[in-house]
Design a binder for these strands. Sequence first.
DNA 1: TATGAATGAGTATTCATTCAT
DNA 2: GATGAATGAATACTCATTCAT
Lengths: 220, 220, 220, 220
Amino acid sequence: MSATADATEFSLESLGRVPLQGRSKASLERMLATARTLMLERGNEDFTLQEVSSRGKVSIGSIYLRFENKDSLVRAVLYQATQTLAEQEDAMLAELAASCATLQEFVPRYVEAYAEVLRHNAPLLRLTMMRAEHDPPISLLGKRTANNAEAKAVAAFMAYRGDFAVPDPEVCAKAAHHIIFATLARELSLGSSSESVTNYDWNVLKRELARMCAAYFQAS
Amino acid sequence: MSATADATEFSLESLGRVPLQGRSKASLERMLATARTLMLERGNEDFTLQEVSSRGKVSIGSIYLRFENKDSLVRAVLYQATQTLAEQEDAMLAELAASCATLQEFVPRYVEAYAEVLRHNAPLLRLTMMRAEHDPPISLLGKRTANNAEAKAVAAFMAYRGDFAVPDPEVCAKAAHHIIFATLARELSLGSSSESVTNYDWNVLKRELARMCAAYFQAS
Amino acid sequence: MSATADATEFSLESLGRVPLQGRSKASLERMLATARTLMLERGNEDFTLQEVSSRGKVSIGSIYLRFENKDSLVRAVLYQATQTLAEQEDAMLAELAASCATLQEFVPRYVEAYAEVLRHNAPLLRLTMMRAEHDPPISLLGKRTANNAEAKAVAAFMAYRGDFAVPDPEVCAKAAHHIIFATLARELSLGSSSESVTNYDWNVLKRELARMCAAYFQAS
Amino acid sequence: MSATADATEFSLESLGRVPLQGRSKASLERMLATARTLMLERGNEDFTLQEVSSRGKVSIGSIYLRFENKDSLVRAVLYQATQTLAEQEDAMLAELAASCATLQEFVPRYVEAYAEVLRHNAPLLRLTMMRAEHDPPISLLGKRTANNAEAKAVAAFMAYRGDFAVPDPEVCAKAAHHIIFATLARELSLGSSSESVTNYDWNVLKRELARMCAAYFQAS
DNA sequence: TATGAATGAGTATTCATTCAT
DNA sequence: GATGAATGAATACTCATTCAT
């Protein structure tokens, strides 16, 4: 299942207006990059189109030529970020699949690797999740992305089906993925600037999460 | 550890301006109730003071008599919500402690009861967590509340110390609390209006979470 | 002509509301003193009645019991300041009259002494003159005060009538007073906080002003 | 010394935002003219931007496109007024220089002409002087303007150096300029709407001022 | 009398969006 | 297509004044 599976529905073309080439494309990329930079700098969507215009060397008119309104621009940035996250998940899972022989080896490395992927993408992921609360298109994007991530994670676990002691490995793998994602995301505050919101030790958390999953999978 | 432990530092008196009685108190309560209602209705803090004034039958001036600015009013609403949540956690833990004989009995009932408490308080808890990202006083409130909740949860688990098979029950109890809270919170989207952000079945999640914790505590 | 000649028309009683005694009088004085302090601190009338209330330990209600409105309070402060200035002018002229034998001796000492009186009273005098622009009662007060000051100054000069070389000493004395007052006032910016608005040397100005008047009076 | 000597530092471009042409320029001029009209009508800066917007047929946004804030607009009006005054002083001095043969002829005509220039510009000059009290940029503008005016006046007097009887004509010219300006300004109340604040006869004042200066310059 | 809590009209400023060029 | 100047609705906050107690 590819990270770009939903490209048609959520493509820039669907969020923006037209396929572009050359100068126009470069200009579109400057808009997106500038908007993303501003969102990362401020941790929210409170940038102005004037700022995008001046910092990104794009005219206000150009922005409205590509995007229906400001929301549309923000959505495009979040869509790109979501794509990136999915691609990194894919790569991470592919690498682990190639290098882990057993479930016992896989579980802690998965927690560790997933934690780093999420940490890296946390700021925009957090904005995506916040926006999903009141923005149906982003909510839909979030659900699809989450479902894809779940499917991919479960498939990765199932490669080690024989190592599960429980009678229902799919159910457990699915639950484990949910729990791992939720815990890591929460501890990252999904974007908290510097320090964690809680002070719970990040390494301890990863270790115990792995330990908990291992016990869960081995319970008879 | 009482739910009101931080009352001095985060009391309405410290957030607002004065202790009140009678009509004044009623008026203050109308402001807070109206602001809370608006925040719940919209899922964010984008209400206007005009709205609080007209819907709450309080003059704009009265609001500024009690609160330094709009932020201060929002903080007071979140503070109250945090208090309420802590009180419900206290009550929930007290009741479980009185009625569960073993850890095996306690774990699933704790997950279930905590899930319901969080679900009930999710909308404002979500706003609190969002605001904590950029509002230091609320960030501090959130950290203290989280620490208190952790301490209370660990203590509750430790009442069943003898039932743990692991050599380090405190560490496991702490991790379990973090993981349970994070998972439940995420699944609730901490305030998602109607349906869950993910479509993962809420009852399955609760069941598996309990199962996972049980396995974790029994691992040798 | 006494400095209190206009007391009836501009008395506190006329500006405020009632004659007072004891506690009430003390409270009235606190209002006035606080308002004056605030006006001096800020160099304008932009204080609030809340500030007068809290700093002066007077209730808002009390203020409205003594004064019709804020303007009325401000006028009372300016009236008092005007009284004080007039009294200091009186004292200054009396002293000079007693100690100067000739016009030649009087002129420079008058310029010097008047300069110091104005410097001392400049901040509130400036507020009075500014307010006179758009506040008829204060404009009237200003005119009467100016007329009184003129009459007193001319009388002082006329004590040395025999020392004038010009054929029209009254005309010259009157003009000299106008010119001295205007020049000193302007150079003081009538209340400019610290430094003069212009950088023209204050001592040179006083010396030349005296020299000019002396020449003027001696011209044939 | 030209009236536009400070143009670089205090130009509209420095106070506002951009150089303009055509429609934009017309709109900028409407803003300034409307603000100036309102300031003259009321004798102070208490106009609202809504008023400028509706009376001047400019949108609020346009104002903020040209000026950082309301203060900036007010400063621009005062700057223009200061420019105008300086230009009229230049013209007046040039004309007198061309038509007066002697100091005796020059002095009364200078007082007369300067009085008329000040009378004409009094309302905005008064606002400039009031604002200078608490607004550093305007204070600086005022000081520079005053220094320029002094230099120009002294130069004009010095054209008649041979006609001075005093040993220090520069010192006297400088003092005379200060005294003439201060006296005229005060008598005009620098902006008093209709009548003078004092009731001293304006023509008498001008005559005696000239007489005084003449005597001063001729004193040996 | 005296208090001070309550009132609400009034205003500078921001910024997404439009549209004349 | 491309530009960026112009628009104006929307909103937090202040403070003189009132009036219930």
